Lab assay of single mutants.
Amino acid sequence: QPDICKDYKETGFCGFGDSCKFLHD
């Protein structure tokens, strides 16, 4: 199970976008 993207979880934004290896839940 992939890890949750910390940036996306906390801020709702991730610089990696769809290529981020972490989950954007």
Results as ranks from 00 to 15, higher is better:
Q1H: 11
Q1R: 02
Q1E: 01
Q1M: 08
Q1W: 01
Q1N: 15
Q1I: 15
Q1L: 07
Q1A: 09
Q1V: 15
P2T: 15
P2L: 15
P2S: 14
P2V: 15
P2E: 14
P2W: 14
P2I: 15
P2N: 14
P2Y: 14
D3M: 15
D3E: 05
D3R: 05
D3V: 04
D3T: 07
D3F: 00
D3W: 14
D3L: 07
D3S: 09
I4D: 08
I4E: 11
I4F: 08
I4C: 13
I4H: 03
I4S: 07
I4G: 02
I4W: 01
I4P: 03
I4A: 05
I4Y: 11
I4R: 10
I4N: 06
C5T: 03
C5R: 00
C5P: 01
C5H: 00
C5I: 02
C5W: 02
C5A: 00
C5N: 02
C5D: 06
C5Q: 08
K6N: 07
K6W: 08
K6F: 06
K6H: 13
K6D: 13
K6I: 01
K6A: 15
K6V: 14
K6Y: 08
K6Q: 12
D7F: 03
D7I: 11
D7C: 06
D7W: 03
D7E: 13
D7R: 10
D7K: 03
D7L: 03
D7V: 13
D7S: 08
Y8M: 15
Y8K: 07
Y8C: 05
Y8Q: 12
Y8F: 13
Y8D: 05
Y8I: 05
Y8P: 06
Y8V: 05
Y8R: 04
Y8T: 05
Y8S: 06
Y8A: 12
Y8W: 12
Y8L: 05
K9C: 10
K9M: 14
K9Q: 13
K9S: 12
E10R: 06
E10N: 10
E10V: 02
E10M: 15
E10H: 00
E10L: 06
E10G: 05
E10A: 13
T11A: 11
T11W: 10
T11Q: 10
T11M: 15
T11C: 11
T11K: 14
T11Y: 12
T11I: 07
T11E: 12
G12A: 11
G12Q: 08
G12M: 14
G12T: 10
G12L: 04
G12D: 08
G12F: 05
F13S: 11
F13W: 00
F13L: 09
F13P: 03
F13Q: 09
F13R: 13
F13C: 10
F13V: 11
F13M: 14
F13T: 10
F13E: 08
F13D: 08
C14K: 04
C14P: 07
C14V: 01
C14H: 02
C14S: 04
C14M: 11
C14D: 07
C14A: 06
C14L: 04
C14R: 04
G15R: 12
G15E: 10
G15V: 01
G15K: 12
G15I: 10
G15W: 00
G15Y: 05
G15N: 14
G15C: 07
F16D: 15
F16W: 10
F16G: 13
F16L: 10
F16Y: 14
F16S: 12
F16A: 14
F16R: 13
F16P: 09
F16V: 07
F16N: 15
F16T: 10
F16H: 14
G17H: 11
G17L: 02
G17T: 04
G17Q: 14
G17S: 04
G17F: 05
G17A: 07
G17V: 01
G17K: 05
G17M: 15
G17P: 04
D18C: 02
D18E: 12
D18R: 06
D18W: 00
D18K: 09
D18M: 15
D18G: 07
D18N: 12
D18F: 00
D18L: 05
D18T: 08
D18I: 03
S19I: 04
S19W: 01
S19E: 12
S19F: 15
S19Y: 05
S19H: 12
S19D: 14
S19M: 15
C20F: 01
C20W: 00
C20Y: 04
C20R: 01
C20S: 02
K21G: 05
K21T: 06
K21V: 02
K21M: 14
K21E: 05
K21N: 02
F22E: 13
F22M: 15
F22Y: 08
F22L: 06
F22T: 04
F22V: 05
F22S: 08
F22K: 13
L23E: 06
L23C: 09
L23V: 06
L23F: 10
L23M: 15
L23P: 09
L23N: 09
L23W: 07
L23G: 11
L23T: 06
L23I: 04
L23Y: 13
H24W: 00
H24Q: 03
H24P: 01
H24R: 02
H24D: 07
H24I: 00
D25C: 00
D25A: 08
D25L: 04
D25H: 02
D25K: 02
D25V: 09
D25T: 07
D25Q: 11
D25W: 00
D25G: 03
D25R: 07
